[in-house]
Design a protein around this nucleic acid. Sequence first.
DNA 1: GACGTACGGTGAAACCTTTCAAAGAGCCCG
DNA 2: CGGGCTCTTTGAAAGGTTTCACCGTACGTC
Lengths: 369, 369
Amino acid sequence: MTRQLDPTRQLDSSGATPTVAGPAAGPRHGQSTIRRRSIRDVALLAGVSVGTVSNVLNNPSLVAEATRDRVQRAIDDLGFVRNGSARQLRAGKSRAVGAIVLDVANPFFTEVTRGIEDRLREANCLLVLCSSDDSVDKEAHYLGVLEEQRVRGLLITPATRDVASLERLQKLGTTVVLLDRTSPTPDLCSVAVDDVRGGELAGAHLLEHGHQRIGFINGPRATRQCADRRRGLRKAVRAAGLDPDKVIQEVTTQTLNADGGERALHTLLDSAAPQPSALFCVNDVTALGALRGLQRREVSVPGDMAVVGYDDVEFAAMLSTPLTSVRQPKYQLGQAAADLLLAEPHTHHQQQVFHPELVVRESSEPIVG
Amino acid sequence: MTRQLDPTRQLDSSGATPTVAGPAAGPRHGQSTIRRRSIRDVALLAGVSVGTVSNVLNNPSLVAEATRDRVQRAIDDLGFVRNGSARQLRAGKSRAVGAIVLDVANPFFTEVTRGIEDRLREANCLLVLCSSDDSVDKEAHYLGVLEEQRVRGLLITPATRDVASLERLQKLGTTVVLLDRTSPTPDLCSVAVDDVRGGELAGAHLLEHGHQRIGFINGPRATRQCADRRRGLRKAVRAAGLDPDKVIQEVTTQTLNADGGERALHTLLDSAAPQPSALFCVNDVTALGALRGLQRREVSVPGDMAVVGYDDVEFAAMLSTPLTSVRQPKYQLGQAAADLLLAEPHTHHQQQVFHPELVVRESSEPIVG
DNA sequence: GACGTACGGTGAAACCTTTCAAAGAGCCCG
DNA sequence: CGGGCTCTTTGAAAGGTTTCACCGTACGTC
């Protein structure tokens, strides 16, 4: 994750007005459009055949220098730009790669997307981005349109468990890579992050610091990520020779946001017989809510309560008490996915698993002195 | 901004591990690919001409029902999917729309993008997303590739001031809409948010609450957004019959992040002769840093200092002291841009300007009692 | 029974590029 | 001087779809 924030990044602006201003400029008539020049026009102007023009573009070494220059000048004079559709029709494949994620606006996918895009640009490909919102319908819609476009490859965080249609696509020549999901079959590539390991890291960290009672604010256990992180946490406890059911006090929130986190915190502290001395939140947003609740209850962090989040979102490091969190290599995940997709020949189907990393900050540091 | 956060949105995970795990599954050979079926295959199987198959697909009403069914069955049996390249070649235009933004990973553009995508999906179009990173080179690269693809339209936050190449594109039949930038010429559509107004809103709000000395943490004045917001703030002060130079104490930070904000805050408070009672930060991230600094200095918010940010980013509402902020209609901005692009015929060039909105929260509320 | 009409369906052209066999030009060597 | 060689260039085919002028057929009308 070496990408740095540029000034613009910081200057993003977000606010909302439901009222559209729209003092539109007076109606104006657009100029009539100019005809696009084709390779024929170039050939005509340069006095060569279309085959030669094509060679200048694709195999310049086959063309004599004088001719090459003449053709190039004609291209420049006419402002000729190759027609991608025609090229693709001939080639049978396009330079576009489709990516279907759950939500482009989700900061996780946003970073992943950026990793994908940067790799694709290097390979001179374009990224077609689609949000499925975890809806099977939208996913099917996009799959259809992307198949029509004969995209060169497809990166997808599937909304369905069923990967049959993806395998069909792959057999038809479209490389498929699963994103943030391990492939259930060995015939598809996939890249994912080990959430069990992430939970384990958080648990081990807190246990190392001597915490004997750990509060755990979890989300719906039906969500794979929640289930996996929980499994990791319990694994860490067992590894320390302790009983997860005794050490961990788990509270679940259906809404994985700040309010849900704060509510869960109050539930936890109001009911827990021996109060926990540490808190693990299934993601940073719930952790933020929990921190707010702790402040209201005048429980100091990390003095009275150590807190660990998950995701390491942008604001985690910026809080008054910087938050310890489990970081996932989002950007690299995207890069790796793109790399697998672009790899030629695409005959080996890899299931890559990335390791999360614990970023220790003030919120979980033992008080010195 | 009615889009709600779904659980997945919250479950986003972000952390980074520089070490790739990659215990790849054993090499496996991909199955040989199957030939794609064309409209000819369908015609053959259904015993009709290709023209009829095309009509079934595009003008079903022209085809007798019995024939239509027979053709449809053939299509289903063969798993035929239209070839987009061929269609586009014929039509001269594709179903794809290009969007060149400064950075997909920037939360502002992320939301804008989502607005664009949703509209395009309704119009059965695809979104090709590109990040220019404000680099003229990358922008030119993407412009070239998108032109080759003959995208139906282009949404762009230009890195260059020069819009000549965009006007050329438009004359060649590619609709162009400027994003978050007012068009310098009446020949291009544009959508933008009024940053002057935003600064004005923030200023007026603080003045209304009786603040006579306002600290202003600004970014590089060369940045349009910073300059505009500053202008708005000063305008509000003048409108209240006061002298901006007396009321406003401005500090500039080159880095628009939390650390820059905190540093600027300390500079401000260490030097300001009469201490300000209110603080306006040019964006929320710097405001977050300023809040951190205020906490360190044990200045209470809003008791001793009212604080207003800009952008209304996700975390603004989640802070211990929820932050008053100027919100921009990001999602609607994207929708409006897409609408302008899709409008037929594209002869009127509108310059739409959206209004920002002040979201008042605890950080600027007068202490009651 | 000839004619007009409406309906279904046909087949070829057009869209623009790439590829490839083949032709042409120039040259060397025997 | 002819054969063989290399270096350039050519021209046509192929790729899949849409469009459109046109052809048949069946039916109703005079």
